[in-house]
Computed example of a mutant assay.
Amino acid sequence: MSNTVTAKKTPFFTTRKLVVMAMLSAIATVVYYLDFPVPLMPDFIKMDLSNVISLLASFALGPVEGVVVCLIKNVVQLMIKGAGTTMGIGNIFDFVTSAAFCLTAGLIYKNHRTRKYAVIACVVGALVFTVISLPLNYFIVYPIYFKAFGGEAAILGMYRQLNANVESTFQALCMFNLPFTFVKGVLCAVVTMVIYKPLSPVLKGKN
């Protein structure tokens, strides 16, 4: 008779991890609702800091868990608000860009758990967050917005109220949306760096 003892495999999502993910998803959903307009941007573009919560999940639990928090946040918000005339494209856009942000930052930090690499992870994540937003906006999001809000001329009119020299959608995205998205990513990264260390023991279940 063999005396070999088979080691039990630790499940990827432990009960505690699921509870923490659910808690962070709920917080992210609430923060997502606390969006606000910003100067020098059209009224339909809002700032929110929900990616702070997703980044916390990525750093404390893992990159996949951060993506799951992004997904739950957007699914819950979509269920509450409904798809509307834009077919939920704002939520889809937010999920894809936020997931890319959290996955990138989380993967870097997972392999190099130092403060230096945490900063690098946040910067690289913010850059990915920004770069991926341009083709998504230009080819998918804004064509749907054109149909929902009265055509391309109506959208461009909002940008021209801010800068009369805007001549095309691509120019508007480069002049306004790209800098805004990068600032949003950096702001979320900075807040995450400030609060992660004191919250890390609680999120990881360590005293």
Rank of each mutant, 00 (worst) to 15 (best):
L127Y: 01
C188Y: 03
G151M: 10
K8H: 04
V96I: 15
N51D: 15
Y159E: 06
L136V: 03
N111R: 14
Y138P: 02
R115Y: 09
G90Q: 05
T15D: 11
T10L: 13
L203E: 09
T192L: 14
L55S: 04
F149K: 09
L34I: 15
A22Q: 07
T6F: 14
K197D: 11
A105T: 13
Y159L: 08
Q171P: 00
G106H: 03
A100D: 00
D48E: 14
A99H: 05
T85K: 12
L55D: 00
G106N: 07
P11L: 07
I27M: 05
L49D: 03
V75D: 02
I108T: 07
E152Y: 10
I120G: 02
G88K: 10
G66S: 05
T29K: 04
G185L: 04
F13K: 13
A118Q: 11
N163V: 10
A105S: 12
F170K: 08
V191S: 05
Y138E: 11
Q171A: 12
M193I: 15
I92L: 09
F101P: 00
F93T: 13
L162E: 04
V19T: 12
T6Q: 15
I89Y: 03
F44W: 11
I195W: 02
R16H: 09
Y33P: 02
F176E: 07
V69H: 01
I140T: 10
D48N: 15
P201F: 09
F176S: 06
L24V: 06
M47D: 06
M47T: 10
F139Y: 13
V202A: 15
G205W: 10
A100W: 00
F139Q: 12
T104D: 00
V190A: 13
F101V: 08
A189W: 00
A83Y: 08
M193L: 15
I92E: 00
I108H: 09
A28C: 07
M47Q: 11
C174E: 11
V141Y: 02
V183I: 15
N3A: 09
A28R: 02
I53C: 00
V119W: 12
L78H: 03
M41N: 04
